[in-house]
Design a protein around this nucleic acid. Structure first.
Lengths: 137, 137
DNA sequence: TGTACTGTAATGCTAATCGTTACAGATTAG
DNA sequence: CTAATCTGTAACGATTAGCATTACAGTACA
């Protein structure tokens, strides 16, 4: 799994703490420790799905566009990383019982795993994340 | 996630269908479509944990060493891929509330996710996999 | 003693990831 | 109107992870 998922969580959490004004990709990138272009790339996905809004030009930037307890981590996972759990099996040997059927079996199992993961991630809303950020260790 | 997990499943399933004799890394690699050295590398992990036995020299190879319904996919995951879900966060900005706390929050969430995944994988024993291999689509 | 294996280190290739540059388009301030 | 400040995206390069491959030592057997 690449880091788009965690980067998206980081960015949108940042926005969740700046609900009253727009944040630039520069500001977010400084918080997340990555390049502003990556932030813009990830946030363009979130925008496409209506979780945030953006504005170009002076005074522009990104701003959260939903209710905090309405967005959960599964929403974000689906946008940034759906299918990431799926293993990339090399073409195995069709002449072997195992080789011929393993891929099908594994795909089903991993699809189930991702679905299962979804049930877990659904329980974390952005509001939960914000609370956790402020909670002492 | 790299493919060690699926390769391990493939290999050990192969062995599960050859319980009466040893299989060479060459034979398994032909079924899985990867290089024999990778098979030996993955299987050396499974051996270290007692799931299989191996023998060097002529007539040697690998053989399954447990009961089919006693080994499940979570066992194999732990050996080959534990921690693979964990995101590699870049060092974020300690001067920012989000940057300073996000890593801790994410690590906890992903630890929970892996634990949750474990509950799912525990339900698949090697016997289940063998049955699925033989089951028609 | 030669042959057939495992075990493992080392090397190199390839693809994914990510940083960086570049620049077009939008918006606002002056 | 023009310069400054943003987003949006494509393109290029560097770094890294994954994997194949080679090489060879160690073990068992015929």
């Amino acid at each position: 799994m690449n880091s788009d998922f965690t980067l998206a969580i980081h960015s949108i959490t940042y926005l969740a703490l700046q609900l009253d004004r727009m944040s630039t990709s520069d500001a977010i990138s400084e918080s997340a420790g990555v390049h502003p272009v990556r932030i813009r790339k990830v946030l363009s996905l979130l925008k496409k799905h209506g979780f945030i809004k953006s504005k170009e030009g002076t005074g522009g930037g990104f701003i959260f566009a939903r209710d905090l307890s309405e967005v959960n981590l599964w929403d974000i996972y689906k946008i940034t990383s759906e299918g990431a759990l799926q293993p990339k099996c090399p073409d195995s040997n069709e002449a072997c019982v195992v080789g011929a059927n393993m891929q099908r079996v594994l795909i089903d199992i991993f699809l189930g795993a991702e679905e299962h993961l979804g049930e877990y991630l659904k329980h974390y809303t952005l509001k939960d994340i914000v609370d956790l950020i402020y909670k002492e260790n």
